[in-house]
Structure formats: C-alpha cells, structure tokens
C-alpha cells in the first residue's frame, strides 16, 4: 500500500466501520454482515491496514484494556480523508447512474 490518497475498497470499509469505536473482530463482522458476505477481509490484511492507518494517524487507539481486542476509532484527519473519498466515489457512481438512466438498451 503506497499511499492512502485514494482509498482501496478494503481501507474504505475499515475506515467506514471505524466511524464508531470498534475492535478488529467487530470490523470484520460488520463488513461481512453489511455486504452479506460478498466482501470479506482476511485477518492479515486487516491487521496490516490497521497498522497503516495508525501510522498515518487516520485512526487512533481508543481503548486497550483488553489486549486481545484493542478498540480503534477514526481521528479528525481520518474523518476528513474518508469524506473526501466518499466524494470521489460519488462522482464515479453518478456518472454510471446517469449513463444508465436513459433507456438505450439495444
């Protein structure tokens, strides 16, 4: 993962899950439930991304009283980056939706 300027789907889902304080396992569960299992994140990927987000100060350790289940949450900077990426994704979706609106089926 070179830069977090353009969030990958995995990073986007994890950051979306961390808009509220959650531990790793809760992040995995939320993503799996929300997408009905169509998007899953492996434990090694999740751990790598959590470490990366911590380093970039996009998330912060919220509660480490249980060393097996550390709780993280987005920082102000993290919320900003996520908001920017939502805008970027909206442009993509709007373009596609607009294109599909006009009934041009052959």
């Amino acid at each position: 993962m070179k830069s977090l300027e353009q969030l990958t789907d995995s990073v986007f889902y994890i950051m979306a899950a961390l808009t509220e304080p959650r531990h790793g396992y809760a992040i995995m569960n939320l993503i799996e439930d929300t997408t009905k299992g169509s998007f899953v994140i492996g434990p090694a990927s999740l751990y790598t991304i959590i470490k990366k987000l911590l380093k970039e100060e996009l998330i912060v350790l919220h509660d480490d009283s249980d060393s097996r289940r550390k709780v993280y949450v987005l920082t102000a900077k993290g919320r900003e980056v996520l908001t920017e990426d939502i805008k970027r994704r909206k442009v993509m979706i709007e373009l596609a939706e607009k294109g599909l609106e006009g009934d041009k089926t052959i």
Binding site: M1, T8, D9, S10, I41, G42, A44, S45
Partner: peptide, 14 residues
C-alpha cells in the same frame, strides 16, 4: 476459509 490476505495491496506489503 477466507484467505489471510484478501487484497493485493496488503499482500504486497507482506
């Protein structure tokens, strides 16, 4: 079982 690395970026990180 879901592979431990599910995306390319973090697999490259490894």
């Amino acid at each position: 079982t879901t592979p431990i690395y599910s995306d390319t970026e973090s697999a490259v990180d490894k």
